[in-house]
Amino acid sequence: MEARWSEGLNLNKVCGKYRVSLWQCPQFLFLVMGVVIIVAVLSAYVVASRYQEPELAALSVLILTVVLFVVGHMIISAFERVAISSLSKSEFISIMSHQLRSPLSAIKWQLNMILAGDDAKFVVSDESRSYLETVYDQNERMIRSVSDLLEVNRIEDGDLVLRPSLFSIAVLASRVASESEKYSSANNAKVTVAMQKDIPMVYADEERIKRVMEHLIDNAIRYSAYKGNVVISLEKKNGDYIICKITDQGAGIQDSEKARVFDKFFRSINALRYQTEGSGVGLFIAKSIIKLSGGEIGFSSLLGKGSTFWFTLPVKKIIINIK
């Protein structure tokens, strides 16, 4: 808490964040206004006590009012400037992401065509195939990064709109587990699913819940550092919720970092130690999506033993059987 306070007082740092000069920075201008008010009250007192003429006191009050008006005006335009710069930033991000995604999706589809293998025109040797698959995987990584950036932008603009439907989270969990197999085996990890029978359907945005699971599993694998089982489990909770837990046997999270895990761009100190990939937006996105879906998200972690990240989703009471 104290660290935050002193950061707030460091105006150079605060104003540097907005990339505006000191005289265009709201925090600094507020400070100036405070000083002006104090000086004004003191000098009005001095003037009034030394000279008896009411005109002089009235004049000093008038001058001070004008000064306050000017500073006030500067503060408002400074706020406007900061607001506009963040608006153009989010527009920039959405235009850039669209521009980036067009060529990325073109690459993806051409490679899909070549690698599908159902066209005699494309005879790909095993060696070429492995290179092309690497290109494909890297391209997918880039697509995911751009999508994550866009998602963060939407969250910050309050523009994240979910498209909920009724779906089987049990089926989804199995699908995500099998899709993660390639990545997990490359990292010597194993992802398994453990669930109760009769897990009910949930009412949520399936694509986005899938992304949440993927982010949590990616993290679990990445921080497992070559030794680990990752378990996805599904349980009913109080009849009204489903709780999904993703447990790893990885590095765990330091106590000092626990409060910031869901912050945007937060990356654990372990991320550097284990040289893991990632931009640090996964958990921020996951939290926003789960909150908006009416669920909760959290974790427990023991340093050196591993972490369990969990989230809940509300249930529509339709029971299906998963064999």
Binding site: R101, S102, L104, S105, K108, W109, N112, M113, A116, I143, V146, S147, E207
Partner: peptide, 9 residues
């Protein structure tokens, strides 16, 4: 459909 999120298949 968002192109980048789907494969041709």
């Amino acid at each position: 459909l968002v192109k980048a999120n789907y494969t041709l298949q």
